[in-house]
Design a protein around this nucleic acid. Structure first.
Length: 589
DNA sequence: GAGTCCGCTCGG
DNA sequence: TATACCGAGCGGACTC
């Protein structure tokens, strides 16, 4: 460790960009309330330099945007343990009902509210960099704010923003929950960058094998693959239209009508209901055509490099706190292609998914002991059957989903009264969330993420319906719109809390994997077991074969830990189904 | 030719 | 056996 590193035993390193590179304000020591903190500022060309100088792996890095700062560290082979992603934290605190009275929440929108990403953190070249770095040290009695760097955009100073966020959290009713949420959200941002960096092992040859088997050889640009061309021919002859374009839903619909079939659309499930010789080849055509356009040869060219698929994850990209993705369609990898996800030689995949996550989350949110009891073991739906609430597992599933999504028709609506009798607390909880949304109010997840308010037009429609000269059409419209928003808030509390659980699960696992790597002496991220995929309630870890069993246990144990973080001693279980396999296709699903 | 909306199917 | 919730992304259809 350098001399500078030895001097800087910091709790926080606050990173900001400046004209000449990067400034890091390290704040440490001092009293609990942040006074008498020891503060040191270094200016270096690149963040990588600062991390090496500081050499403090246990520190927490504070920066505007993990997606803008962290990739350059990963490129240099550097991982950080913890961070605060100010942009993501701001988004949570701005909207949370728990911090509604804070200065942060009431401030007029500024740089931190912009949805745009922060400017690329990679500084321009330094033709005339004066020195490798400069260090200023000072004993101050200020709190943990950095000096405005002057070169950051007005209002964008990360030290100032950090203090504003801290103040909001301190003044809230549930500071502990919010701190946990922000830590988990920030850990998620680190994981997203790491997963993108490492990539999901993807065997191009296996993928191409699937395509050739189903579609035929790779066609020339603009040509239809042989299998599609032949199916198109069969559809045309069965419908007596030699020029029909099967890719045009409008044309297909007209042709079906001419053939005397009364279908309202060309949706697969609707076509499956009618009996006509054109239907089987048409359904097959649609299926293969989807494979070609979404995950065909073009997709391989665009997204698979050096045996890895590198999707761009967007933490917090969905209102509920779920992750979104950008490009590559990582949220919709078709099951047909899972076998192209193959572990490297000498490696394994640990594939895990949380069993019936959302009903278990609901049991915890509502403190419904009966539902928690039904969830003892790995099959909550079977537990509901065993309790006598419904007869079959299928009924239990459709009823639970209906309760969480707000189904009003069909079998699930019919089962609701029985579910409500067996699990009154759980059902009351989602009903309350629905009523809140119908009034236009907001609901809040377990750790403090609140739903957005409905838009202006929503309120206008509601207002119109309550005016004296409202027509019955106005009232119908307002009611249906209110119910729609109620279904959103009903689902929000469950989905957002489930997303929080998943973040805690992954953050805990990441910490354990880092410990394992240290014990084993693995130095690089990709030499050690590491996360390579995440989808709502499912993860994949790529692991050296000899560590795979240990990883599997950590995956299971981390799920228990996540449950305790969210629900404390309340006895709701979070079992995960975890398998050690060579390829993703071997895992159940 | 670019931008936007819609229909459809994939995932949880 | 479809319905309710959250998405991504493609291609066609339409507008400017």
């Amino acid at each position: 460790m350098s001399e500078a590193g030895a001097r800087i035993r910091a709790v926080l390193h606050i990173v900001s960009g400046s004209e000449n590179g990067v400034q890091v304000v390290s704040v440490g020591g001092g009293d609990d309330d942040g006074t008498n903190a020891d503060r040191t500022t270094i200016r270096v060309p690149k963040l990588v330099d600062a991390v090496q100088i500081v050499g403090d792996s246990a520190a927490r890095w504070v920066w505007s945007d993990t997606a803008a700062w962290y990739p350059q560290l990963l490129e240099a082979g550097i991982r950080v343990e913890r961070c605060v992603d100010l942009r993501l934290a701001h988004a949570i605190l701005k909207r949370s009902a728990l911090t509604a009275d804070s200065e942060l929440a009431r401030a007029t929108p500024d740089r931190w509210d912009s949805t745009a990403e922060f400017p690329a953190a990679e500084p321009a070249a330094f033709p005339d960099a004066p020195a490798l770095f400069e260090i200023e040290s000072s004993e101050t009695d200020e709190d943990a704010t950095g000096e405005p760097s002057g070169s950051e955009m007005a209002g964008a100073d990360p030290g100032v923003e950090l203090e504003r966020q801290e103040a909001a959290i301190r003044s809230s009713r549930e500071p502990g929950r919010l701190r946990l949420l922000i830590a988990a959200e920030s850990a998620g941002a680190l994981i997203a960058a790491e997963m993108r960096h490492a990539g999901l092992p993807w065997r191009k040859d296996v993928h191409e094998g699937v395509l050739e088997e189903l579609l035929g050889p790779r066609p020339e640009r603009g040509e239809r693959p042989a299998a599609l061309e032949s199916l198109a021919g069969r559809v045309r002859s069965e419908l007596g239209d030699s020029r029909l374009n099967p890719d045009s839903p409008a044309e297909v619909l007209r042709a079906l009508h001419r053939a005397g079939l009364s279908v309202a659309s060309t949706r697969s499930w609707e076509l499956k209901k009618v009996d006509h010789p054109a239907i089987p080849p048409l359904l097959e055509y649609k299926k293969l055509s989807r494979l070609l356009s979404a995950n065909g040869w073009f997709w391989i060219d665009a997204w698979v490099h050096d045996g890895r698929f590198h999707p761009d994850y967007v933490p917090g990209g969905v209102v509920s706190g779920r992750w979104a993705t950008r490009g590559g369609g990582a949220l919709q990898l078709p099951k047909q292609l899972r076998r192209a996800v193959v572990a490297d030689d000498g490696w394994k995949l640990v594939v895990a998914d949380a069993a019936q996550l959302e009903p278990r989350i609901l049991a915890g949110l509502s403190a419904d002991e009966a539902m928690a009891t039904a969830g003892r073991g790995t099959d909550l739906y079977q537990g509901i059957v065993d309790s006598g609430a419904v007869e079959t597992r299928a009924q239990a599933k459709v009823a639970m989903l209906g309760a969480m999504y707000g189904s009003t028709t069909g079998e699930s609506a019919l089962l609701m009264p029985r579910l409500a009798r067996a699990y009154p607390r759980a059902i009351r909880f989602v009903e309350n969330a629905a009523r809140t949304g119908e009034r236009g109010d907001i609901v809040t997840s377990r750790l403090g993420r609140s739903s957005p308010r409905p838009g202006e037009t929503w309120s206008e429609v509601q207002g119109l319906a309550s005016s004296p000269d409202a027509t019955s059409a106005d009232e119908r419209r307002a009611r249906s719109q209110a119910r729609e928003w109620g279904r959103f808030t009903r689902n929000f509390v469950v989905q957002a809390s489930a997303a929080e659980w998943a973040l805690c699960w992954m953050a805990e696992l990441r910490r354990r994997l880092a410990d394992l790597a240290e014990q084993r002496g693995y130095r690089r991220l990709q030499a050690a077991p590491h996360l390579v995929y995440f989808l709502h309630d499912e993860i994949i870890v790529h692991s050296p074969a000899r560590d795979a069993e240990a990883v599997r246990e950590h995956v299971v144990d981390s799920a228990h830990a996540a449950g305790r973080l969210l629900f404390g001693a309340f006895p709701v279980e979070f079992p995960v189904i975890a398998a050690v396999v060579d390829d993703y296709g071997q895992a159940k699903g």
